[in-house]
Design a protein around this nucleic acid. Structure first.
Lengths: 337, 337
DNA sequence: TGAAGTATCGAAAACGTTTTCCACAGTTTT
DNA sequence: AAAACTGTGGAAAACGTTTTCGATACTTCA
């Protein structure tokens, strides 16, 4: 590998001069600067990020923490999409992305925080399902720049998909289509679910619609089988709902299956509404009506906030940045009026 | 940050001794070693990966190169699953994972190879769709340890899903179910598709079954809409096939839609076969019969081969490592005999 | 008892940068 | 003509490690 020393030797200058020429310092003559840059390019020079990081305490490397209980890992559509968007805009700003999951060094397991320090990461984005573990808390309470997704910590900036508005839009839509008997199979018990659930109830209340307890079922996100079972229970109800909200698009397929196995047609016999707006939802038959979460925007904002936090620490903290989704009208909801 | 120097001062030893105590060298007394380790832990010491990498030329960081033409990025189920598995086993071996996509440094775009050198990556796994770009070639021809997925380069180790055997298994299955009129909507023109297509033809020939040209349709991977159109064309054929192979599970949903929109039932009226075995395929109704690619094994093998290449450069190269999948029998194929 | 061996530790160089401070020349101001 | 800038460049320290080589003290052996 060709280093600054090699260039310095070839140009008969010092390494300090080379550094200045290559990094756009002003106290250097134009002639020398041009010569050095030319030689550097010719010799195929590239800086060494380790040396640079060692000296400057800046790695231009961002961590992403992404661990969920079910270990769906990168196969989780929603987070994968956010991550991808995060990656794209972070890279455009000159940052690399490194995973900050569990790791070993010297036979000892490092905590997330330790891992970040070890790698000298400039900041980290947390896109977890479970934010309550002590390791996550250690990271959040540290001095490292942190941005969280869909979870709010005091004093930390969070990018959150507006689940309240999203659910309201969906309920409003279902009601506008004439539905009054609306059920909700919800996902795991976390802040996202609580937001959606309370918005579900509040919006129905605004429409003066009461929802029986039997219309609220607990399933789990991305769990088609469990959701299918809950759907069957709803379909077996004496006073069956006309429209059922699913935990998410993926498990909505379980809802489809439950209906189709009973010979019911969607949306003629039963209407179904999803959440997420993943590509698959529009490949289903009939196309799923769902709320498209703006994963691209979420990832982009996360990267922007994180880099701004890094490069400009005095920025006033807007703690919570809400990102709107939008309703994706498929053909899975029947018009009743 | 507490460094070795701090520990050395506190223990009245030199940094060299601290380094030895912490890294398990033999030329150090047990008493001192224990004391130093205790103090290190107490002071919350962690090594600095940049300094270490600078000195040793080993970063314990692996690159993953993952760029496709459609920019499906991390939302590509198949690659995301492989990546996740790669990540898990690489991490268990003490390596971190960094993305090696395009990147800027000093306002100049780096090539993949330059990027790897810049970050001092120990090796890189390439899981691309398109392996023919000059940048990928530059990387492959370099001296960096490289493992490729589903593509074979001379002198490089490749992990490839056995598409020949996979397709053979599927065709054998369809034939065993009594199907003779079998169509194939295939994906983009690349080596994977060519393997599957030739295996499709060869296996049918072994069964003395001829397939009309009109039964072979070109679509694109993960493209539900195009696949749906091709499926419609097949269904409109005067001599309609009884069983249709899809490019992949995701676009198979397009096949389902085409059939269901015509009021056809799966598998009673038309049988459908997918490829990949992604979770969604088993959430469909009816469950899709497909070939489950062993993404977990592929990712694991890739990580194992890459780390072994790094840590033990003299390993004899097994250039091509085939990974078997297995048939996932759903309910989307009707028994005709 | 002297020589040889062994165990333990440290000094110092090195990895490739960045950055501060100083030096020197030439130029402008008094 | 002295003083004060200005522009350009270099010396050297520093970042936190690893690693070689030598030094010292202590054992062991003949």
């Amino acid at each position: 590998m060709v280093s600054m020393k090699d260039i310095a030797k070839r140009c008969n200058v010092s390494v300090a001069t080379v550094s200045k020429a290559l990094n756009g310092y002003s106290d250097i003559g134009k002639a020398k600067r041009d010569e050095i840059q030319a030689v550097a390019k010719e010799m195929g020079y590239f800086p060494n990020s380790s040396a640079r990081a060692l000296k400057t305490n800046r790695s231009y490397d961002l961590g992403i923490l992404f661990a969920d209980n079910l270990h769906s890992g990168l196969t989780h559509d929603y987070f994968a999409a956010i991550l991808d968007s995060f990656k794209v805009t972070a890279e455009s700003k000159g940052y690399d992305i490194t995973f900050t999951s569990m790791n070993m060094v010297a036979n000892r397991r490092m905590s997330y925080y330790e891992h970040c320090r070890y790698r000298g990461l400039d900041g980290v984005v947390i896109a977890n399902i479970d934010f309550t573990t002590s390791e996550v808390l250690e990271l959040v309470r540290s001095s490292l720049p942190v941005v969280t997704i869909d979870f709010v910590f005091d004093g930390r900036v969070a990018i959150v998909s507006d689940n309240v508005k999203g659910m309201k839009d969906l309920v409003d839509y279902a009601v506008s289509m004439g539905h009054r008997k609306i059920a909700y199979i919800h996902g795991d018990n976390n802040s996202v679910t609580r937001d959606r659930l309370s918005s579900f109830h509040r919006t129905l209340a605004e429409h003066n619609i009461t929802v029986p307890d039997s219309y609220i079922k607990a399933s789990r996100y991305r769990d088609g089988e469990t959701t299918e079972k809950r759907m069957e229970e709803l379909l077996d109800l004496p006073d069956r709902p006309t429209c059922v909200f699913m935990p998410d698009d993926f498990s909505a397929v379980g809802g489809y299956s439950a209906a189709q196995e009973r010979g019911l047609h969607i949306p003629e016999d039963i209407s179904i509404i999803g959440y997420d707006g993943i590509p698959m939802s529009q490949a289903l038959f009939p196309k799923l009506t769902t709320l498209k979460q703006d994963t691209k925007q979420i990832g982009k904002k996360a990267a922007e906030e994180l880099t701004s936090l890094i490069e400009n620490p005095k920025t006033t903290l807007i703690e919570k940045i809400l990102v709107d989704g939008y309703l994706l009208e498929g053909a899975s909801v029947r018009r009743l009026n």
